[in-house]
Nucleic acid binder design. Structure first.
Lengths: 134, 134
DNA sequence: CTGCATCCAATATGATACTG
DNA sequence: CAGTATCATATTGGATGCAG
């Protein structure tokens, strides 16, 4: 357990635990934000900047139009992205991260790097596990 | 886009993009790991160290026994946690993070802190959004 | 205590077709 | 192009009962 970061709720300085109400909210926010499509869209927007709907669909591997729309709406509601409609024909709608969205992307950056870095170890662990069992 | 971290796939140093196969794997890993229960269990284990099954259920707010078991199995398979069975009666089973799990917990730490820090902004954004619409 | 199996309800997601 | 609507399916999650 050496070197573990003092996580989430407990404040390293005060050593105090936040009140349960705040903890529940954090849990709720984590639940919403720790979502596959949210993370992947966040990543694409962080990398590409302002992006149109259709191109976003191409860049986010495997997302359906429905999930793309749905996730973008949620992210817009949570203040993570801004949706800009250009009144032209054919329609042109662009999405970009808000300041808040950028900070979340930065927070997730560590997870992306972790995933990229540790793929081999995960694959190995799975192979070992599956060998022991099924 | 100022100050954005060079995300995931593109290496800041080489400027090179990883091959598609790796990208697909990263996406898959993200999809598995960016899960509500995985994150919350990870957090509890990071904070409390080795923990028994039942207590884990109490510490992870709102998790059902089924999801707890299921998520722990996945995490075990992915090499994130170790499951130790003590041959006593009544049974005693403890879970703790592996080194790999600890590094993932560290990576997620930024997201926990982000959530805690930005709850107010998210609530405000939601209220504003809901006011504009529904 | 741990945790698997099963049934069931609720949600989430995907494919497809359609609209401004 | 950027969605919405609809239906079919998959996954999730809870409750319960049972076993080692």
């Amino acid at each position: 357990m050496t070197g573990l970061p003092a996580a989430k709720i407990t404040h390293p300085d005060t050593g105090q635990t936040a009140d349960p109400r705040v903890e529940a909210l954090v849990t709720e926010v984590i639940g919403r934000v720790a979502d596959k499509w949210t993370m992947l869209i966040l990543e694409v927007l962080a990398e590409h900047g302002e992006t149109r709907f259709t191109q976003l669909g191409r860049l986010v591997e495997g997302v359906s139009q429905k999930m793309l729309t749905q996730t973008l709406r949620q992210m817009e509601r949570d203040g993570l992205v801004v949706r800009t409609v250009h009144p032209v024909i054919p329609p042109k709608v662009e999405y970009r991260l808000t300041d808040l969205g950028v900070t979340l992307a930065e927070a997730f950056c560590g997870v992306w790097l972790w995933a990229e870095k540790n793929i081999d170890r995960i694959e190995a662990a799975r192979a070992a596990f599956d060998g022991r069992k099924g």
